[in-house]
Every structure is written in structure tokens, then in C-alpha cells.
Design a protein around this nucleic acid. Structure first.
Length: 417
RNA sequence: GGAGGGAUGGCCGAGCGGUCAAUGGCAGCAGACUGUAAAUCUGCCGACUUAUGUCUACGAAGGUUCGAAUCCUUCUCCCUCCA
């Protein structure tokens, strides 16, 4: 194992966060000699962070834990431009009110991983709209424009790929990397920020900032990127049975979050333990040795630890308990999604397929019917054979009806009123 | 400004007057096998209380036709070449 002088670089590299760095040795020396300030930028592309943002948040998390100061830069300004990196299509432009609401909503997740206190290593929250919104075009162009050549910009992947694929790239988007570069320099000026972290797709944008800093502020800036996380079977991370994996609990419950990690592929467990938990390396090394069915123990640890980080110990143990009851005992856990149905309605009888649809286990009545027809629907642990069956109070046991769609999706019907 | 080409279901991509709710592939869901894994095989995959039924859908709006995703007109957007 390579040894580094600073806890920061030692930790990040040992845990698998390093993809590229502008000057690893110099950064290591700098981090070893004293606290540094580093940032990651997040555009308001949704009202919650998602699993794809988590790696960079974890980098900030470790940065803070190793004695440095993290900045979370909210892209209140850059969101109005739209980062073309890694996409073929222009982002849909959103209005100010939406951006503000999204940024506020994203905060809840950040606060789970970072301490925004007033100490020397307290995380700082900034919004680049603070300086980008009021930029004056001509002075801005004269300041940064001379330091960017079109020749160079055209070689950037974000631009090059778009052009190669003959997809349009608007002038608006073309400016994104310049503004991101400007952000870095501005953060350096305001907070002495010398390091920008990000996903590997941000490399080009980050390097532009590093170079701009050297040219107009004579500052020594660093860039550090982490690999884009995919599952070992090559799929992009972040999809689950219910769609995107959001970090906000109201969009994606702690139980679902737990299950997401619990269902990780075998080949990902070790890597994910390193990236997404706080567990010490030797403990991870022990868990990585597990093989065959025993690897499930490692997955449980992964799920519990990852969920604890985001939702807290209580929510995590509740989720684990629900999963244990549901999967290992065939029982009913408290955290399963629950819907209420009035007694009167049930007395009159409800079609099975409608019940599945209402419980959120099927998008439409038709899908519910198909589910039943395909043999994937279960009520009180018994396979539903007749798609036209009617459910009445007879099905209620201890005040509830347990529904299952496939092996992994469960819901509870509570009889109310 | 001129000349061509294109817009199809979550994505890619066939169809080019009826047999089209639309071939294929990917993604997704379910079943089998397992370890709440992967791989593999099988089924499903617009909506509707399921109906040899109705409705909505092939960029938008009109039109031709017994009948249009398919033909015509106009519009919108995109691409390529020329100026």
C-alpha cells in the first residue's frame, strides 16, 4: 500500500476515492502541513441529492474528519447555465424559485454527513449565485476571457463528445466550464480554498479552474476526482426497484435505502464498504473475506452502516429489523410501506388487483392484474391465483393484510375506521 | 437566405395506406434456479373492473381516404451541405 504523509490523502487513496489528481504529491504535502479548504459544487438539478452525489459527499466527509474544512458550493448560478458534461442533451432550464427550493431541500442530506459549525473545520455553505448573478459581461470577459482558448475548450470531453456525436451544444452551455473555473478562483479568494473535488466527469471543468487560478490569481490550486461508481456488472449505480435512489427520506425511505445496499452485488460489497461507510479498514478487510452465502453478513453491515450515516442509528436499526422480520421470518416489519383502507370499503369487497395498485405495488390496475397473472402477487404469504378475486374482511389478520409483489417488494394494508 | 434529411412507446431503432398498440434490442417487472447476489432460461411489458370491447398514442394542426405512424398542406424543432 502506498504511504502518504497526510491523513487526508492516505484515507482517500486507501478507500478507493482517487481517480485523478492534478498533483498528488504536492497536495499530500500541503494537506500534511496544515488544514486546507476544499469544495465540491452541486447544481440544483433535483430537489434531493441522489446516490450518485454520495461519493463526493463522502470525500468531503473524510476531508472534515481528517482536519480540513469542506465547502459545499450550491450552484444557484451555474444551474441557470446547465453543465453539458456527460450528456447529449441540453438541460432544461429552471427558474429561480425552483432552484432556491431545490437547494434548500438538498441541505438535509448534507447535514447528515458534514458539520456546519463555526469551528475551524466547520463546513461552509455557499451559493455561487452570490457572485455569478451580478457579473458584468464585459468586465468578466476581460478578466477571464483571455485565459481560455477556444482551441483548448474544444478539446474538453464535455464539448468534444457533444460535437462528435453531432448533438447541439449551445453557447450558453459552452460557458459552463468558464464559470466553474471562475467559481474555484472566487472560493480561493473568499475562503482560501485550494482544492476542488468531484466526479471523474468533472475533471475538465476542474482543471480549467486550476489553470485559471494560476493565471489570474497566481494561486496554487488542486483538483482531485473520484471514479464514477458503477456496479460490478457495469450498470450505472442508483437505480433500484422504485427508481432513483434519493438521499432525502421523504423521497426514498430509510427502509428502501437499507434494502438498496442490502441488495448490492457480491462484487461490489468491499468497494462500497470502503466508499460509503466509516468502518475501519481492517474491519472491511475482514468482511471482504467472506464468501458464498456468508457474504450476506457483509451486505447487512454495509446496509446498516450506510443507512446509519444518512438516516441515523435508530432509523437504520429499524430498517434492519423490518428487513429481518420480512425476509428471514416471513413476518411483518414496522417500516414496510403501509396504506389505510376504511373497514366499510373492505366489508363491501375490493378487487385484489385494485388493492395491489393502491398499495403502490403496481403502477396501474392493469399492471397489478399482470402481476397476479404472472404469479408474482402474494397476499398474506399465499400466492394470488385468481386475478378477479375479491378481498373482504376475511383476509384481515390482526388488523392488517400483508401484500407482496415478487420477493422483495412488500406492503401492508391497515384497516382503519 | 437556398437545397436536402429527420422527428415513432423510458431509451435505441424498424415500419412507409388496411392484418399496427406498432418487429427487434436495451432497460424494467414477474416466474424458475439461488444466498434478499450475479449469470442463465421463461413469461409480461399504453390505459381502462379484462371487454373477439373502449380510449389514448407514431413532433403539432388541418386535409385526402371506407381506412393513415404510413399520402398531401401548413407549422415547430433538429441535422447536413451551400451562401
Amino acid at each position: 500500500m502506498a504511504q502518504y504523509k497526510s491523513d487526508l490523502i492516505q484515507t482517500l487513496t486507501a478507500r478507493g476515492f482517487l481517480h485523478q489528481c492534478t498533483d498528488l504529491a504536492a497536495l499530500d504535502a500541503k494537506a500534511a502541513s496544515g488544514p486546507i479548504t476544499a469544495y465540491v459544487g452541486y447544481d440544483a438539478t433535483a430537489d434531493s441529492l441522489h446516490i450518485g452525489n454520495l461519493v463526493s459527499v463522502m470525500m468531503l466527509h473524510w476531508l472534515q474528519r481528517t482536519g480540513h474544512r469542506p465547502i459545499t458550493l450550491m450552484g444557484g448560478g451555474t444551474t441557470k447555465i446547465g453543465d453539458p458534461s456527460g450528456r447529449d442533451e441540453t438541460r432544461v432550464l429552471v427558474d429561480d424559485a425552483t432552484i432556491r427550493a431545490r437547494m434548500a431541500s438538498q441541505q438535509t442530506a448534507f447535514r447528515r454527513f458534514l458539520n456546519y459549525d463555526s469551528s475551524a473545520t466547520g463546513a461552509v455553505l455557499v451559493n455561487n449565485a452570490d457572485w455569478l448573478d451580478d457579473l458584468q459581461y464585459i468586465p468578466f470577459l476581460r478578466t477571464v476571457g483571455p485565459h481560455f482558448t477556444i482551441n483548448r475548450m474544444l478539446t474538453m470531453d464535455s464539448v468534444k463528445l457533444r460535437l462528435e456525436r453531432e448533438q447541439p451544444l449551445t453557447f450558453l452551455e459552452f460557458n459552463y466550464m468558464i464559470l466553474q473555473g471562475y467559481d474555484f478562483v472566487e472560493l480561493n479568494k473568499r475562503f482560501g480554498c485550494t482544492l476542488q473535488l468531484g466526479g471523474s466527469d468533472q475533471w475538465g471543468n476542474i482543471v480549467q479552474g486550476v489553470e485559471l487560478g494560476r493565471r489570474i490569481a497566481n494561486a496554487e490550486l488542486f483538483g482531485f476526482t473520484c471514479p464514477l461508481i458503477t456496479t460490478s456488472s457495469g450498470a450505472k449505480m442508483g437505480k433500484s426497484v422504485s427508481g432513483a435512489v434519493w438521499l432525502n427520506g421523504d423521497k426514498f425511505s430509510p427502509y428502501d435505502y437499507y434494502q438498496f445496499w442490502r441488495n448490492a452485488e457480491d462484487g461490489d460489497v468491499g468497494r462500497f464498504l470502503n466508499l460509503f461507510t466509516d468502518l475501519p479498514l481492517d474491519e472491511i478487510a475482514r468482511l471482504e473475506k467472506l464468501e458464498g452465502a456468508e457474504i450476506n453478513d457483509a451486505k447487512k453491515v454495509l446496509a446498516l452502516e450506510a443507512t446509519t450515516l444518512l438516516h441515523g442509528a435508530e432509523a437504520a436499526t429499524d430498517a434492519a429489523e423490518t428487513a429481518r422480520k420480512t425476509f428471514e421470518q416471513g413476518g411483518v416489519g414496522d417500516d414496510l410501506p403501509t396504506i389505510d383502507i376504511p373497514t366499510a370499503e373492505l366489508k363491501a369487497g375490493i378487487a385484489v388487483w385494485n388493492l395491489f395498485q393502491r398499495a403502490g405495488l403496481a403502477e396501474s390496475n392493469g399492471e397489478a392484474r399482470r402481476l397476479i397473472r404472472g404469479g408474482g402477487a402474494k397476499m398474506n404469504d399465499e400466492r394470488c391465483a385468481d386475478e378477479n378475486a375479491t378481498v373482504t374482511l376475511d383476509a384481515v389478520k390482526d388488523g392488517i393484510i400483508k401484500l407482496g409483489a415478487g420477493k422483495k417488494r412488500h406492503a401492508i394494508i391497515k384497516v382503519a375506521g
